[in-house]
Write a protein that binds this DNA or RNA. Structure first.
Length: 485
RNA sequence: GCCCCUAUCGUCUAAUGGUUAGGACGUCAGUUUCUCAAGCUGAAAAUACCGGUUCGAAUCCGGUUAGGGGCGCCA
């Protein structure tokens, strides 16, 4: 039997980390078993389902690289199928009309709750005869359709948790449809899983309690039910279920903030799953290779951003500058012009090669894509700084000034072309400046070129700026010091 | 209140009856370095509690406690 699984979100909110993880595990299981992974949009709730959310879910899944294999199915397109099943259940008297009002139901629920009982439906409308039913329908009394439960306990098997025992009397006759044409989740989901030939239902633990209801439906409809796999929940910092309600970030928001799909996938994969070997850095391909459903965890996971950030940093470093370029926002730094040259706000003109170099310098230090350019903004915008910043440790103004003058004069003798190679510049200066004196030369040089107390090494800065700009910036620093002496 | 699920460092987890309880992130220290980042080395840090089974328990069983989920004409 070949594996068929699905991710079946309802478009009532954007895709968040928990949903993405459910999709990922379904995807990994399908791929690792050479099976099929499907996407189904569960939009039976017309009030809450929004096209905007459906788009977000589809975009996010695409962005993560979780490709589904067959056409997307929408429950809103399958009304006829559900109607047929509803009619069947009605005809067989397995389902029945319930005319109880919401107020009536709510009152009974409160009453049971105060008595310390589980609130369930009384079964009041269970035995209405055909005449009464027709009569009430004619009088347009509101109704729903309920399934008749057996008065016994069911034992079913969850793939991860083993046998689970639940008494149907704890559930009561539950609603399966608003009317003959509007099924609820419990029914539509069951029907679709059957007709799509789903072999394994891999979903969040919040659905564990609907399993006995669905198993009953499978039984009434004389279908075999799939294997149930209930994933432990992903919990937020407050230890409660991740949901839109308490501000869980959506995948699209993470994307906007500058996270890479590789990082998010790697991070969520480790929430409840662990490969055999103790190597946590995995591409999607590697995950597929080592994925085993049996290795899934049973206990909920609280996610914490610092590890996600670590992964993002890691994958950022691996990403070539060419691929990062289209993801970056240069609008505060200058403009691209003719022949792919970049015209920076400070008058510098960089070719593509230099832009790549700049990106590489930024990405070594950034956590998020959006941080990259901020780490190297001195390449683009004029900057100012406090002259005191030029002083290394206990260095004096005078000493620092003369060191900068020395560096300037030394650099002045170097040919312009040699400025392109940071390594060469480093070797050159390392040979001239005594080892124990480097801080007194390189620190002020670096500050002169960046205006910051932290930045890439001065040689990298010089290799981007080129000879002329470098000498200008050093002169500026010397002037700053002079004004204080 | 009732039903169900879960329980290893702060967090994610490994160890499916025998390990000095391992790894990752984070934290701290050292090292490298002009700075930052990265790297390298090291440290602190856990089997919720009480019983039982067993020569031997993180692991099996029972109870307690704690956390979570559910109790919708939502999914």
């Amino acid at each position: 039997m070949s594996v068929r699984v699905r991710f079946a979100p309802s478009p009532t909110g954007k895709l968040h980390l928990g949903g993405a993880r459910t999709a990922l595990f379904n995807f990994l299981f399908a791929r690792s078993q050479k099976g099929i992974f499907l996407l189904r949009i569960e939009d039976t709730d017309k009030e809450r389902s929004l096209k905007e959310f459906e788009d977000d879910i589809i975009d996010s899944l695409n962005w993560l690289g979780l490709k589904w294999d067959e056409e997307i199915i929408r429950q809103s397109d399958r009304v006829d199928l559900y109607a047929k099943i509803i009619k069947l259940l009605l005809d067989k008297k397995l389902a029945y009309y319930c005319f109880c009002s919401k107020e009536e139901l709510e009152a009974r629920k409160q009453e049971m709750l105060t008595r310390g009982e589980t609130p369930i439906y009384s079964g009041k409308c269970r035995h209405l005869d055909a005449k009464e039913i027709q009569d009430k329908i004619k009088r347009k009394v509101n109704y729903v359709l309920r399934l008749r439960i057996p008065e016994k306990t069911i034992v079913f098997r969850d793939f991860l948790r083993g046998e689970i025992k639940i008494d149907y009397r704890q559930i009561g006759d539950f609603v399966i449809a608003k009317n003959e044409f509007e099924p609820l989740y419990v029914l539509a989901n069951t029907v679709d899983d059957h007709y799509q030939g789903i072999t394994h239902i891999i979903r969040g633990e919040e659905f564990l309690h609907t399993t006995p209801k669905q198993i009953l439906l499978y039984k009434y409809l004389e279908w075999d039910h799939p294997i149930f796999v209930h994933l432990p929940l992903v919990l937020g910092q407050d230890r409660s279920k991740l949901s839109k309600r308490h501000g869980a970030k959506s995948i699209s928001e993470y994307r906007q903030e500058g996270y890479l799909p590789e990082a998010i996938l790697n991070f969520i994969a480790l929430l409840g799953w662990h490969p055999n070997v103790d190597n946590e850095l995995m591409s999607l391909e590697e995950m597929i290779k080592s994925f085993q459903l049996e290795k899934l965890n049973k206990s909920p996971a609280i996610f914490n951003t610092s590890k996600l950030n670590f992964f993002n940093k890691h994958y950022l470093k691996l990403k070539p500058a060419e691929e990062l370029l289209p993801l970056l926002d240069f609008k505060n730094f200058g403009k691209f012009g003719q022949e792919q040259k970049f015209y920076a706000n400070n008058g510098c003109v960089y070719d593509l090669l230099k832009i790549y170099k700049i990106i590489d310098l930024g990405k070594e230090r950034a956590t998020l894509i959006n941080d990259i350019l901020n780490f190297v903004n001195f390449f683009f915008n004029d900057f100012d700084y406090d002259a005191q910043l030029l002083l290394w440790k206990n260095a004096s103004l005078l000493e620092t000034k003369s060191n900068l003058i020395f560096i300037k004069e030394t650099l002045d003798k170097i040919k312009e072309e040699r400025f392109d190679d940071a390594m060469e510049l480093k070797n050159f200066l390392d040979n001239i400046i005594p080892r124990d004196k480097r801080g007194y030369f390189f620190w002020p040089l670096r500050v002169a070129l960046s205006g910051k107390d932290f930045s890439p090494p001065p040689f990298d800065l010089m290799s981007i700026f080129g000879k002329e700009k470098t000498l200008n910036l050093i002169s500026k620093a010397i002037d700053k010091l002079s004004s204080l002496i």
